[in-house]
């Protein structure tokens, strides 16, 4: 068993894979052109996120971020890694 406790050992899912109602805690954001904007909007490691709704064509999605609702495209959501809580 690995005791180092690195984040990479936790099973993570990206936000675009979340089912309706699924909740998770952000552990990591991919470094890409969306990262800075995602953090600006309050999506950073430690935050709890819940999948609230999906647009009729599945994209974009609406998520609850500890009290407010954000809409993001699947492409943007795919750079958010979460562990289940």
């Amino acid at each position: 068993m690995n005791l180092s406790g690195k984040a990479s050992d936790v099973v993570t899912t990206t936000l675009d894979q979340f089912e309706l109602g699924q909740e998770g805690e952000i552990v990591h954001l991919d470094d890409n052109e969306y990262t800075a904007k995602l953090i600006d909007m309050g999506l950073f490691p430690g935050k709890r996120v819940k999948m609230l709704m999906k647009a009729p064509l599945g994209d974009p999605v609406g998520v609850d971020v500890e009290g407010y609702t954000l809409s993001l495209r699947l492409k943007e959501a795919s750079s958010v890694f979460l562990k289940s809580v």
Binding site: E33, Y34, K37, L38, M41, P60, G62, Y68, T69, L70, S71, L72, R73, E76
Partner: peptide, 11 residues
């Protein structure tokens, strides 16, 4: 700039 749509859905 890259197109993105990270926006708030206000109450």
């Amino acid at each position: 700039q890259k197109s993105f749509l990270i926006m708030e859905l206000p109450m």
